[in-house]
Design a protein around this nucleic acid. Structure first.
Length: 730
DNA sequence: TCACTGCATGGCT
DNA sequence: AAGCCATGCAGTG
């Protein structure tokens, strides 16, 4: 136990004969006999103050007397009153204003007569007699689990607030009453420093000093100030991510570098093995900013990280708190990632509403009390300014926040479902910027807010996986496929599949040297190819849809085809499980348990999925063998009749061995490339030449379920189109 | 009929 | 079990 200043409660104050005034500036802090409680300490107790200091404190003159030379004095923006903003004593005697500067409590109270949404931070309830005046204004907020409203008052109390609410587990051994009986005399200061130093040692190195560049006195301050006081810069603490990656979470902590009591930089800390955000789970019964109609002025941007944000919304950006130097005016901007959101189909859809994670919205965006919300100005990575309506709906006794009117922006950024938008803040401008990350694998093209193209993840081994929702260890172990993950994969796939129509056609074009045989079924002409094109991305070998694939004939109206192709990609009628599939689809993906919560599939598992995969594998192996035999036979023939070059070329073409491009299209899947869309029954049928004119209109899906199938590769439309009834690669 | 709006539902965490 | 949130859908213009 570290020595700790006596900080007994008022009840305990008289219990111990040997006492010390908590005021280290007190000229004779250990010679008093009468102590009174002073400000509340982080451990909940009160500082012991000698009568003289206590009087000063109670009269609100403590800082005037003892901290006169300390830095951190600022002026109330309203009345001009000087307020010390840099110590625990006066921590709650002022409020930080959204637009910068501070306001004394008196002025704040006038304005705060406030709406029902105003909630003073918990620290207000105990910080000082002054602060306690706020008690009557708090509407029992502390007892209501849902009445959290992150305050706009992100004063120094924030740190204390966090400390207070962190509960057990953090490296802070609060002194017991017995401890307090221990005289500490000259250990006082050292003990304090040791303690806090210990607390801070965990991550103090992680706090970028560069961020401090940006700390400037408020424009209206007329008194000398310490440049760092009240600069609530988001700081980064690195955390071992669930997948072993270093993940940064913004932390906002008051900084003061003058060594004044309390909020020294060394006091920044975070709980070991816990992200600042994770501990905020408990802190989140927090508080929201005052509503502001002034666009972004009400944004609660000064405290990113103060609130709990579900990890999946934690910004996973390389630049973290990137300090940008504006060469022209030597100003420095700090970019602080706030949160990110993977765009859902709805978000990216034409409705133009982007649902925001509630906690993020409440933490980082203006508080709104009307469902109409407020306009929110956001800058995209090109600097273009967008104004969305930040609104909410009531939903199950809760709120559902969303941005309205995002379609133009999303289109401008060419985003789609599965892509990630990243909301960040630029200080000191307090601009809200919206970057993005494409879901595609090509992370090198990431444009997260356009601020950092040197994405580490694209090059180093610590690169974060594309997985936007990295599973926890627990989840990993259970191999649970969450819906979000599934959606991510699917949408990521989807985005990668977003091709031009010509490209899509290119994928499914049959080899040029093949001539189809025409079969007519129900009045529809079908082109049949012995060697069907296999749909897949040209260069990945993944996703080869190893089954019969329909292709629109050339007569197909191009525009219509495009529409259908797009419909395929973004069909709102698709199942939630598998965006390309229709309700009732019985393909292997769609029949899987939605949550992935189905029992693990063992080797002998006989579930439909496993059976399908097993049969599929057998089929593929057989086919592969057959293919090899054919190749060998042809090669043998070639040896026997060396003049038939053309024949050989053609046979090689057919077997996918000459043209690289062709090979990519036709690459026989490896074991790891089993097409989940495959339905062995159908596929095996297609193996037989006698079945090439099958009337099965939907090789992949139920006829009922796969109604108007889309045109392109995976699930083709069949109605009134000439189709290539294809074989899988063989 | 279509677009828009706001609420309801239900899967999922 | 509660709450979040993606999405559906009814109502309206």
């Amino acid at each position: 136990m570290l020595p700790f200043p006596s900080s007994s409660s008022s009840v305990m104050a008289s219990s111990y004969p040997t006492r010390f005034c908590f005021n280290r500036e007190c000229p004779d802090f250990n010679r008093h006999e009468c102590y009174r409680p002073g400000w509340r300490l982080r451990n909940g107790d009160f500082a012991d103050l000698c009568s003289r200091c206590a009087s000063a404190y109670e009269q609100g003159k403590f800082c005037d007397i003892f901290h006169q030379r300390a830095s951190g004095w600022r002026c109330c923006e309203s009345c001009g009153k000087r307020i010390h903003c840099g110590c625990i004593v006066s921590a709650s005697a002022f409020m930080l204003l959204d637009a910068g500067g501070i306001e004394c409590l008196t002025c704040a109270r006038k304005k705060v007569s406030v709406g029902p949404n105003f909630r003073p931070p918990p620290s207000f309830l105990y910080q000082s007699p002054i602060a306690e005046k706020f008690n009557d204004m708090s509407l029992d907020w502390s007892s209501s689990a849902r009445s959290y409203r992150p305050p706009n008052l992100s004063g120094p109390s924030i740190l204390q607030y966090n400390l207070h609410n962190r509960g057990d587990g953090y490296e802070f051994n609060q002194p017991t009453s017995r401890d307090k009986a221990t005289a500490y005399s000259t250990e006082k200061q050292r003990g304090m420093n040791d303690l806090m130093g210990k607390l801070m040692s965990v991550n103090s190195n992680n706090h970028s000093s560069s961020i401090l560049y940006n700390q400037k006195p408020g424009p209206n301050c007329k008194v000398p100030t310490c440049p760092n006081v009240n600069a609530y810069q988001p700081l980064i603490s690195l955390k071992e991510g669930p997948l072993g990656t270093q993940r940064a979470f913004p932390v906002t902590t008051p900084i003061e570098t003058n060594g004044h009591l309390g909020l020294d930089e060394r006091y920044l800390w975070h709980k070991a093995n816990s992200s600042p955000l994770s501990h905020l789970h408990n802190d989140l019964n927090s508080v929201a900013p005052l509503e502001s109609k002034n666009l972004n002025f009400g944004i609660h941007l000064d405290t990113p990280g103060k609130y709990q944000v579900v990890p999946r919304y934690c910004p996973k950006v390389p630049y973290k708190n990137q300090v940008l130097q504006n060469l022209s005016n030597e100003s420095v901007s700090v970019v602080t990632p706030l949160f990110e959101k993977i765009l859902s189909v709805s978000d990216a859809g034409r409705v133009g509403r982007m649902v925001l994670p509630k906690k993020c919205a409440e933490a980082f965006l203006p508080q709104i009390s009307q469902t109409d919300g407020v306009p929110l100005t956001v800058h995209d990575s090109t600097g273009k300014e967008w104004t969305f309506q930040f609104r909410f709906w009531f939903n199950n006794n809760s709120r559902m926040y969303f941005l309205e009117g995002v379609t133009p922006c999303i289109q401008s950024m060419q985003l789609q479902a599965g892509d990630t938008v990243i909301f960040s803040r630029v200080d000191p401008e307090k601009k809200l910027i919206m970057g993005f990350r494409k879901a595609s694998v090509a992370q090198s093209s990431d444009q997260e807010t356009g601020l950092n193209n040197n994405r580490e993840s694209s090059t180093n081994g610590d690169a974060e996986p594309i997985d936007k929702h990295p599973p926890t260890e627990k989840k990993k172990s259970s191999m649970t496929t969450t819906r979000s993950k599934r959606q991510k994969v699917e949408k990521g796939d989807l985005s990668e599949l977003k091709l031009t129509w010509e490209e899509a056609q290119g994928f499914i074009l049959p080899p040029p040297n093949l001539t189809p045989s025409i079969t007519t079924i129900e009045g529809i002409e079908f082109e049949e190819y012995e060697d069907a094109p296999v749909i897949g991305k040209p260069n990945t070998g993944l996703g080869s849809t190893y089954s019969a694939n329909g292709r629109l004939s050339a007569e197909q109206d191009d525009e219509e085809a495009k529409d259908e192709a797009e419909g395929l990609l973004t069909s709102p009628k698709s199942t939630s499980k598998h965006p390309r599939h229709r309700n009732g689809c019985t393909c292997i993906v769609c029949i899987q348990s939605p949550s992935g919560a189905s029992p693990k599939h063992g080797r002998r598992c006989s579930c439909t999925v496993c059976d399908t995969v097993r049969r599929r594998r057998e089929t593929l192996l057989l086919r592969k063998k057959k293919q090899q035999i054919e190749i060998e036979n042809k090669a043998r023939k070639e040896l026997e009749s060396p003049n038939s070059d053309e024949e050989l070329r053609q046979s090689a073409n057919n077997s996918g061995t000459t043209s690289k491009n062709h090979e990519q299209r036709h690459a026989p899947p490896s074991k790891a490339q089993i097409d989940l869309n495959f339905q062995p029954e159908r596929d095996e049928e297609s193996l037989s030449p006698s079945n090439t004119t099958t009337k099965d209109k939907s090789p992949h899906h139920d006829e009922t379920s796969c109604k108007p199938p889309s045109s392109s590769s995976v699930h083709s439309r069949h109605h009134h189109h000439k189709l290539h009834v294809d074989f899988a690669d063989s």
